[in-house]
Simulated assay, not measured.
Amino acid sequence: MKTRKNKFRKRNSEETRAAILQAVGDILRKDGHHGLSVTKVAAKADVDPKNIYAYFGDYNNLLKDYIHSTDSWFPILGEYGDGELPELSQLRDIIIGIFQNQFDTFGSNIEMQKFIFWQISSVNATMREVSEQRESRAALLLELADKHAKGGDISLRACFAIILGGIYYNVWHAENNKSSVCGIDINIPEEREIFRDTIKKLLRLIWEAAG
């Protein structure tokens, strides 16, 4: 009987890299971050573990590359990362759009739900770095929002943080427990739309009060 010289599936470089990233997502959806390791990712992708180091440098770079390809914040905030800021008069509606988009995307992106939960539930230098990168990209928009609230006694940043935390909590609750929060069940389309519309109305009220 002939021995198979290479037990791994043959792919070109682009296919191999894509298969590794896909394996991270598959494991994250099924087992959460506790299921991730170089060995498990390589086995899922049907590649030699050495390929992870060849294509990504190390395991942490693999995680960062995967998150950057999946996290909806990076493309949104990247639009304003080069100093091309909107007019202050446009900022309120832009921020409303960002938060509503985040609610929509986070609710449908199981992988993002998993790695955001990872960031808040355990100490991990890579997850901290990714979180700080998001903060850095958002800084220009936040500084512009500060100009609107200059001299007021309402912190727009604190309000944004509260709304974002509410989005995350309600999505996690609906996804994991399939139940309501304060009588709102965003698994029901009509109530999901009420929640989404209320994000807009809250941000409008906060913006007016801050200015």
Rank of each mutant, 00 (worst) to 15 (best):
Q102P: 09
R196S: 06
E87N: 03
K200M: 02
K40N: 08
G35D: 11
Q102K: 14
S179Y: 08
R157M: 11
N176A: 10
R157P: 09
R17T: 13
G32Y: 11
S13F: 11
E193W: 06
I154P: 05
S69Q: 12
P75I: 07
F117P: 11
L62R: 01
H148L: 00
S155N: 00
L144R: 01
R192C: 09
E208C: 10
L62H: 03
S69D: 04
G211P: 06
S136G: 13
L203Q: 02
R157N: 09
S179D: 10
L91H: 04
V123I: 15
E175I: 05
I154F: 05
I67P: 00
V41M: 02
L140D: 13
G97S: 08
K147G: 01
V38C: 13
A42T: 01
M112C: 04
Y169T: 09
I206F: 03
D153E: 09
E14A: 13
Y59V: 00
I120V: 15
K150W: 04
Y80T: 03
V47N: 04
E84R: 15
L21Q: 10
D58F: 08
S108K: 15
D185Q: 04
N101E: 14
R204I: 02
L21S: 11
E190D: 02
Y168A: 11
A45R: 14
T39Y: 07
W207G: 00
E84Q: 05
C182Y: 14
D58K: 04
A145D: 03
V41L: 08
A161R: 08
G57R: 07
K44Q: 07
F8K: 01
F117N: 15
Q22P: 10
L85K: 02
W207V: 00
L91F: 02
I162A: 15
A210C: 01
L144T: 04
R192N: 06
P49F: 00
M112A: 06
C182G: 10
Q119W: 10
A158T: 06
K5P: 06
K10A: 07
L62K: 00
V47W: 01
D82G: 07
G211V: 08
E175P: 04
D58T: 04
F160T: 03
G35M: 05
K44P: 10
S136R: 07
H148V: 01
G166C: 12
R204G: 05
S108F: 06
I98S: 07
G165L: 12
L21W: 11
E191Q: 15
A18M: 14
Q100H: 03
N60S: 13
V181E: 15
E84P: 02
Q90H: 12
M127W: 12
R17Y: 14
P49E: 00
Q119I: 12
L202N: 11
I94L: 14
L156K: 02
G183V: 12
M127Y: 09
T70H: 13
G151R: 00
E175L: 14
I154M: 01
T126E: 13
R204V: 03
Y168H: 12
T126G: 08
Y169F: 14
M112F: 13
E190H: 06
V47G: 11
N61M: 05
S72Y: 15
D48N: 12
G151L: 00
A125N: 03
K64N: 08
H68K: 10
K40Y: 01
I76V: 07
E14I: 08
F99P: 10
V38P: 07
K40F: 00
G166P: 15
I20D: 03
Q102E: 14
P189N: 01
S122K: 09
G78P: 08
F74N: 11
K10P: 10
A42Y: 00
E129R: 07
F56C: 05
